[in-house]
């Protein structure tokens, strides 16, 4: 039963990815701008431009260009970056570890801190702890990343000289970017955990658990948390997919060489193959994470029986 569900979801995912290639291909080419022109910069000569366009195959009709792209893609060829003149896979591959590293640190920060905070706030509902936790998490969700990032740089790099201001290197380089990115997620996770916990804690079965004399710790950790976690896991899955390619602001502020900022630069330079590669990669990640989240549901809530 769950196997057929997994098969159904897998097929759906592949169709979704195919659709993504069509959409990104068309959007890029329908937007104004010409990669040959941007490669030449503003010192363009008409002869040079015409020659370059022809070499790059930009003078062919769109359907032909798309089919070329798709057939190469199916053979595992993601194309060559127009700017960097190197295969998209290795070009983006350089950046992917940085993105994954930042994502992992951010998720760890948000989960390890956000879950306990949310649980405590729910258990100590309407106490001073609850209010201060909620204020901090509201702050986390409302402070813009570029501002927070710059303030961290000013305080910890320029004045205190404790942490490196930018770039990727050791663990010290990871602290400020993952805090900046994780602070938002922390707010989201803790608020969501708190509200879900509050709801679950007032449910009948929790009252029953308490009534049969279980220790409060077991009631909270075993009975309540497991049910409260469902929406939190969903949101984290969605956020992880979005953050992989979408941490543009944080990546930019800290010069963190991830794929989000690379995608933005590639769009500005109309480096079609790179944009297509990154979108496809992010879409794959997104689809994969959601697929895994759905599978995880089966474990978290055995009642979910997919047909």
């Amino acid at each position: 039963m769950s196997y057929s569900y997994i098969f159904y979801r897998a097929t759906q995912s592949i169709l979704l990815l195919l659709l993504a290639t069509v959409v990104v291909f068309l959007i890029l080419r329908l937007a104004p701008g010409d990669p040959a022109l941007l490669l030449l910069g503003d010192q363009t000569s008409p002869e040079g431009l015409a020659q370059l366009r022809k070499v790059m195959g930009l003078d062919r009709p769109l359907p032909e260009q798309y089919l070329n792209y798709l057939s190469r893609l199916l053979r595992g060829d993601f194309g060559t970056s127009i700017r960097a003149q190197r295969p998209v896979l290795t070009y983006v591959g350089y950046r992917l570890p940085a993105s994954l590293q930042l994502l992992a640190a951010t998720l760890a920060f948000a989960i390890l801190l956000g879950l306990p905070i949310g649980i405590i706030a729910a258990v100590r509902h309407r106490s001073l702890v609850d209010y201060s936790v909620m204020t901090v998490s509201l702050l986390g969700q409302s402070v813009p990343a570029f501002w927070l990032g710059l303030m961290l740089i000013v305080v910890f790099s320029v004045h205190l000289r404790l942490l490196p201001p930018s770039g990727r290197g050791g663990l010290a380089h990871l602290i400020m970017p993952s805090f900046t990115l994780g602070f938002y997620l922390l707010g989201l996770v803790s608020r969501l955990t708190r509200s879900e916990m509050l709801e679950v804690l007032s449910a009948d079965y929790v009252r029953t658990a308490r009534a049969k004399g279980l220790a409060e710790r077991i009631v909270v950790a075993k009975h309540a948390l497991r049910n409260a976690l469902l929406p939190v896991v969903t949101v984290l899955g969605l956020q992880a997919g979005a953050l992989l390619g979408g941490a543009v602001v944080t990546e930019t502020v800290f010069s963190w060489p991830g794929i989000g900022s690379l995608a933005v630069q590639a769009v500005y330079q109309r480096d079609y193959p790179v944009v297509q590669g990154i979108v496809l990669l992010s879409a794959t990640m997104f689809v994969l994470v959601n697929f895994l989240v759905d599978v995880m549901y089966l474990y978290l809530d055995p009642r979910i029986a997919y047909r």
Binding site: L150, V158, R161, P165, G167, T252, S255
Partner: peptide, 18 residues
């Protein structure tokens, strides 16, 4: 050569002696 695209962080890197 470190690549720091944003103006603010680039200035901060100079100020921090980086």
């Amino acid at each position: 050569f470190k690549i720091i695209r944003e103006n603010g962080p680039r200035a901060a890197a100079l100020e921090a002696g980086d």
